[in-house]
Design a protein around this nucleic acid. Structure first.
Lengths: 271, 271
DNA sequence: TCATCCCATTTATCCTACAAATTAAATTAT
DNA sequence: ATAATTTAATTTGTAGGATAAATGGGATGA
């Protein structure tokens, strides 16, 4: 058990094996897990290695442990698992721009859900938020107002995962606004001169009028500053093709893949 | 150093402290980190605790280590960090539905970017993909074809993070299709009878005609089966309000928050 | 019956030792 | 003197044991 020829370390393997154990025994949130020494014996490793693997699972919130009570499986939430140990400072500029674009696209895509789900009460709360929103200059809302207005929109969709995502990338939004202020100001100025500034009040108006098309339009313009910023910042940098796509330039190969769609789960060449 | 009265464990703290070290010393990807014993001395803990914290950072891909070479900082990518140790089986039904809705919304939101960025070559590749796509029954494409068609759309946006996200949730899509087949079939049948089935070929047609509005329309219908599925599956279950929103029912409090937008970073009551 | 105290169990932390890998230095061979 | 080989040193990887802290449960006593 002291070989390490592979790229994967023992901890990596134990990490996998513990997850396999959970799967095989069909544990559900609330169930308790074997204790550390049991895992160590079961997997033929030292308790130390088991603890490192468990530490990872604790970080992502898959398990929880307390002295004497042992460990229990927790309900896993994909974006909550990232909230620990995450800071915009660790992201490269491309990732930052990507995430900004990601967020904008996502919000543009939930328009239908918003109109489908919203109630009178929702609209009242949005009005309340807009009323107290502080307009600083151009359309640079105070971060608080900005956050709560959009948080409310996310909430209306009823999709908690989207709400979690917003919470997760909030520091990123703050970071971007702090660090690229110089880029936003001239863009906003130009938009203002062209009369393209869309405020939260404008968006709310469309909601109250139940005008979905106009809502989408306004929302797009509301995010225009970000879209322009991203395009300017990226400049002429080439689009990068995803490897998985490059790998199937050959029609013959592609055809082969498509006719065996069930082989995908065990197909590493595409990951 | 043997107290543990707090909810946070020593490993949690060291985890934070190591990240702080990276921040304070302005390390960039490629830079090397102090070795394990140095961290242990620096932070006044045992090497074991340091290793557990480092193990977490290794899992999310923030650092990489090799024997004798020490550890180096890596370029962090938010969704890549999740790809290890993640399985749909650990997600509750609500999370699964949320993620399905998340994905659909995201894709609906990137339409503009697609039309902005696409080239003749992209269209040719899409044609190639559609040509080899295997239509099984109704609009249930072979998973391979489905995947590559949409992967190509993501690629056109030039947003790598979106592409990574698709890779990440691919097992979830497979899982959902496997486990809820019985739900999809009647929905698809009904859509078929109403002539609402939209194939990849239909979508491609809009792209070739540069008809953005129709593209959005078709894409929406292409995903209609998922939207209906989600609504049916959720049934009458109440929408859950995000805590952060509930906490500011009081206009006075809200006003207070908004006027101090810079205090947010240290404001736990809203996280 | 109930409150209190003690014990067993399990995680949390620390310590020491050795193995494996790999870089760097030293030594030997040509 | 240069090249090849061997040796040494460093750092992560793994093992095993020991103690501390927390806590659930049982024993004890009023």
């Amino acid at each position: 058990m002291r070989k390490q020829l592979l790229t994967t370390t023992l901890v990596d393997q134990v990490h996998e094996q513990i997850m396999d154990y959970i799967k095989e025994n069909k544990l559900v949130p609330g169930n308790s897990l074997p204790n550390e020494v049991q895992f160590a014996e079961m997997l033929g490793t030292s308790r130390n290695v088991v603890r490192e693997a468990l530490s990872r699972l604790k970080m992502i919130g898959l398990i929880e442990s307390r002295t004497r009570r042992g460990m229990i499986l927790k309900e896993f939430s994909i974006f909550d698992s990232l909230k620990n140990g995450f800071d915009p400072i660790f992201l490269g500029e491309n990732s930052l721009l990507d995430l900004l674009g990601f967020r904008v696209s996502l919000e543009l895509g939930i328009s239908d859900d918003i109109f489908q789900n919203m109630t009178e009460e929702d609209i009242n709360e949005l009005e309340e938020i807009v009323r107290f929103g502080v307009m600083l200059k151009n359309n640079e809302y105070a971060l608080g107002s900005e956050y709560y207005f959009h948080a409310k929109l996310y909430e209306i969709t009823g999709n908690q995962t989207i709400a979690q995502f917003q919470k997760l990338i909030r520091p990123i939004m703050v970071y971007i606004k702090d660090n690229f202020k110089a880029y936003f100001e001239p863009i906003n100025l130009e938009l203002k001169n062209k009369g393209l500034i869309v405020t939260h009040a404008d968006i709310l108006k469309c909601i109250k009028e139940r005008n979905l098309a106009e809502f989408k339009n306004k929302l797009e313009n509301h995010f225009l500053v970000y879209k322009i910023f991203i395009r300017e910042k990226r400049g002429t940098s080439k689009r990068i093709r995803t490897e998985q796509y490059l790998s199937l330039k050959s029609p013959a190969l592609m055809k082969d893949k498509f006719f065996h769609p069930n082989d995908f789960s065990s197909d590493n060449s595409l990951d």
